[in-house]
């Protein structure tokens, strides 16, 4: 598979007069054509900021890309001008956000909002764009699209607003779709509908999807590969099955164990991760998970572990992978 997005050594910092928050601290990953990659992590782990900075959606200042390259189809998009970026944003790479109420303009009819992006990127008339908007609304499963196209966002339900957002993102057939917690604000039954829709659209169009979420249940439904983020770093990445059935990083173990499974018996406590993530104003020198890690060693505090390969597709940044480290068994019994 051809890589479509290659990010290496990305550092993003938010600076204010008094603080410097090092939100992204050296992130490397590649998204290939036609794959669905899930980015998981807790709030503040940097999963949204990574993609907002790739899309240049963060106001600068306070945000700043200190270091790193972002190759989109082989071209470094950190180096291009804002005008050139506008040709990529919305057309090549599109984004869906968590809260469709705040990301749709309440004063503009839904159809016009979809048509806007078409007119911006393609030479079409308003009428053509609006006809296309009706088709798009139909494609994402909105009933009576020719009436809905003239309505305002408040006349849509939460699930329909998210569908409209997806229609808008798909308007120019982007090669890469970034979905930032697209189902978090939705009810379970509607969430399932939106996941099905995204899966179908992905199969039909062959575009790549980045799915940002904190819900491992959703990840299991949709992803081909998973990247686990913690305190501004990717601590583990692998295929869906590698992350769920052969996880290597203690944080991934903790995340998986803290979700109750439907076959979980009630007499055992949930394995929780004690404490909370470190502040990124003064991030720890070593592994950021040290303070919460039951297997922490002296070296963990002093030095960030190198990323090591567990397989060709599976990478972990943890000192336990070092040949001199004590052997620690994954405490989660494999469920396969």
């Amino acid at each position: 598979m051809k890589p479509i997005l290659e990010v290496s050594d990305l550092h993003v910092t938010f600076r204010s007069e008094h603080h410097e928050v090092k939100a992204i601290r050296g992130v490397d990953f590649t998204i290939h054509e036609g794959e669905v990659v899930a980015f998981v992590g807790e709030s503040g782990s940097g999963k949204s900021v990574t993609f907002q900075s790739i899309m240049r959606l963060l106001p600068q200042p306070p945000a700043n890309i200190d270091k790193g390259t972002i190759l989109y189809n082989g071209r470094d998009i950190t180096k291009i001008s804002e005008t050139e970026m506008q040709k990529i944003r919305g057309k090549e790479i599109a984004m869906i956000f968590q809260d469709p109420m705040t990301s749709l303009n309440p004063t503009i009819r839904v159809g016009k909002q979809i048509a806007e992006s078409l007119m911006k990127h393609q030479k079409v008339t308003y009428q053509e764009a609006k006809d296309r908007a009706v088709e798009l609304l139909k494609m994402v499963g909105i009933p009576s699209p020719s009436e809905r196209v003239n309505q305002y966002p408040h006349q849509f339900s939460g699930g329909m607003r998210q569908r409209a957002m997806i229609a808008m993102a798909l308007a120019c057939s982007p090669k890469l779709l970034i979905a930032d917690e697209p189902t978090t604000a939705l009810d379970v039954t509607i969430q399932a509908q939106i996941i099905d829709l995204l899966k179908d659209l992905q199969t039909d169009t062959g575009s790549s999807i980045v799915f940002i979420t904190h819900d491992l249940g959703v990840v299991a439904e949709i992803a081909d590969r998973v990247a686990v983020m913690y305190a501004g770093k990717i601590v583990e990445t692998g295929t869906l099955d590698e992350i769920f059935y052969n996880p290597r990083h203690p944080y991934t173990w903790g995340l998986l164990a803290s979700m109750p499974r439907l076959d979980q018996t009630r007499d055992q406590d949930l394995a929780s991760i004690p404490g909370s993530p470190p502040s990124l104003v003064n991030p720890p020198v070593g592994c950021p998970f040290t303070a919460r890690c039951p297997y922490a060693m002296k070296i963990c505090q002093e030095q960030m572990p190198e990323t090591t390969k567990a397989s060709d597709s599976h990478q972990v940044a943890c000192w336990l992978q070092h040949p001199d480290s004590p052997k620690v068994e994954n405490p989660i019994v494999s469920r396969r």
């Binding site: 339900s157 399932a192 249940g217 990840v219 299991a220 499974r261 469920r335």
Partner: peptide, 22 residues
């Protein structure tokens, strides 16, 4: 339709889709 954090179960289980909205 409740997401379960287990890819194999997620693939195998039969899904009963609830259509439409509340």
């Amino acid at each position: 339709t409740a997401p379960i954090p287990d890819p194999v179960q997620a693939r195998q289980r039969e899904k009963i889709r609830i259509k439409g909205e509340l």
